[in-house]
Design a protein around this nucleic acid. Sequence first.
DNA 1: ACATCAATGGAACGTCGTTCCAATTACTAT
DNA 2: ATAGTAATTGGAACGACGTTCCATTGATGT
Lengths: 223, 223
Amino acid sequence: MTNSIPQTERRRDALSKERIVEAAIEILDSSGESGLTFRALAARLATGSGAIYWHVANKDELLAAATDHIVARVMAEMAKSPGPREAVRTIALGVFDAIDVHPWVGAQMQRAPWHTSMLQIFDSLGRQLEALGVPQAAQFDAATALLSYILGVAGQNASNARMHGQDPDRAGVLAKTAAHWAQLDAEEYPFVTKVAHQMNDHDDTAQFLAGIDLILAGIEALR
Amino acid sequence: MTNSIPQTERRRDALSKERIVEAAIEILDSSGESGLTFRALAARLATGSGAIYWHVANKDELLAAATDHIVARVMAEMAKSPGPREAVRTIALGVFDAIDVHPWVGAQMQRAPWHTSMLQIFDSLGRQLEALGVPQAAQFDAATALLSYILGVAGQNASNARMHGQDPDRAGVLAKTAAHWAQLDAEEYPFVTKVAHQMNDHDDTAQFLAGIDLILAGIEALR
DNA sequence: ACATCAATGGAACGTCGTTCCAATTACTAT
DNA sequence: ATAGTAATTGGAACGACGTTCCATTGATGT
């Protein structure tokens, strides 16, 4: 009943949770969330779905493991930053970039916000707040605000990817959205129509960091 | 082929998109997102799934319509607030409360972030930024940051509801989470273990508003 | 009265996550 | 070595889902 790895390998290409997770990530990256099915996974691994279930409890655990895999890599590559403010930006940017490459991670983060990989990010963010001079009582709220914002952007990226597949024409989609906004009734949507043009020449990453900076500015005002 | 409402009703309890959406909301509120199936909906409306599809294109449209229904009510009930700062808090709180009552709305907001109902919220937020004295160039980023934060919290509430059903013991869940955090390795999670106790006696709404205030403070620093 | 067509309800299809189980392969004790 | 036990495999089968299909109903306009 134990799930330990045997001393000698059963076959050269023996199944293992690691191999399954890697195959799952490949499918998720190439075919999106809807492409990951146990049938597709079994086909890629040249096995049956029953064999996969011996190593993985269910699809939720598989998605969680895949997310852990990506997040762990991101957090490991995180170089030490000079100051706490830069560190927060680096962490946030690392997560953002990872979600940019693997949009399904954003959806999964939303689905299990307090899972291990999220706790690591949460803790990393929180550690910097002390260094930033944030009062003890406010650190929890500040860290939660940062994480919620990151999760919000993550979810939006995921849903963008879900709708538009793998980016045939990112600028085109933006232009179409901007055009749609501009056509709206200016009485009903005065703000949206006004900022529609900004949707065209906007940089996702810069906009994300602008939000982080906004929250950081608010946090620093607490000091 | 047209979907217009006939002059005379076919039956007293004739189907209509409105009646279908209302039934869907009842199911979503009582049984959660996973409870809403076309079979359950057909049973509640005493009809077949084919009849429903004559009024509604697919499940996505049904969920979008249900979300619109809730959001429209929230935005309509929004009383005029004295100042722009209070107005932003009121809008955010209105959305938060709605998601608290209908957690599935949070998940749907994430799924279709640029749908009509989201645009309404986005526009309402943006309108207040002008009054707050935010520079034109920064209004787009500021409004997006607020919306992303709200969507982030919305998604988390939705996933909490998905995991813990309809609140048998909210305080108990919080206490269990706090206990779990406290037990983590303090070397690996210094921040989480430190703030674990704050998870116990924390108020969701207050924490949400604290995040809004943080972003508002950052926005006001732009002035 | 009849023809037309919006509207209905339920059977049927294909796909999914998951479970089940007979068959196979590796390990252990003798 | 060899038998016996346990780990591991692969694929069939199950139930539920979203969706499509279609024969039937009933109101409307002529």
